[in-house]
Amino acid sequence: MSSRFRLFDRTAVMGSGYIFAMVNRMQMLYYILILPKHLVQPYMIVGILGVGVLSQINLFILAKYLTSNYFVLGYRGFVQLFSEKIVRFFALLGIFFILIKVIVTTLGYVEIVHQFMFPSMKTSWLIFVLMASGFYIASQGMEKTIRLSIISFLATIWVILVYIPYFLPPISEIHHLYPLVPGEVSLHSWYGLLMVWSALSGPEYLVCLGPWIGPKEKILRGMSIGNALSVFEYLVLFVACLLYYGSPYLEKISFPVVNMIRYLQSPVFERVDLILISLNMIYFLYLIALFLLCLYGAIRIVAGRINIKTNRKGFLGSVAAVFICMLIINGWYWREG
């Protein structure tokens, strides 16, 4: 039984379509849902564009590595490049970063579900369900998880169309978009820009997926298109929020991007927001699964068990550890909003 449990097999190489979908969905994670609240001022539209360009420079640097010969070799490439000890040290660092990413993403999403769908439910139940489904997807192996990226992309990209009505009168008020030049630059706006910057992070996790993605020439193209699309989506969502709320009001809303959906009413189903929140779960789950796999890989490297076959117990153990971390953080530290 356990001999069939192979997480990190490779039978095919995923093309630029997968890279594009992965980069885009990673950048559209949790942060975008709270971002408009922190950007607030209309001139931040320019800020988003600027940070988008910066992020593209990041991608150039990343692509330099991804197209090198070391990358295709995966773990062995890293060992050639540094040495085993240093790689293990890096993997240890990586565990922390991946752990934080998984926890923030999951808890953030759980918070949204809790606030809008099940206000009376215990959050630990929601975390459990999310982690269990993430575990299921991840246990199908890396290859299938990566393949899921296209599905999750196609299933959720059209949501952007739902925001079209917010650009049309009578919902939108054009004077909410003024002024487009900053009067005074406060610390808060720098903080907002930093948040855009961190929201656009995510593609760096492609480093962990060496053996599965390729071919070399197309990597940068896939990433660039994904990044451009994310910046476009950021702009659409932010401008929609501004037109709908206006900056002074926007500041006071906790999840503007989700909250504004409640204003739409379909004749069939009144609470459109519930459908959209549930839909978002597809790519949240996909990314949680992907990060769990990366985390498990990193743990194996740190433990020096890279050459031993993967087994179900070990994987389940590490997922359970993440789950417990999450419960602890949810109970003690997590602050809503």
């Binding site: 004077h175 003024y178 002024p179 487009l180």
Partner: peptide, 14 residues
């Protein structure tokens, strides 16, 4: 009547 909104423009600080 939102008269003030007519005085706003993209390049002037309100």
């Amino acid at each position: 009547l939102e008269v003030g909104a007519h005085t706003l423009s993209p390049l002037v600080h309100p």
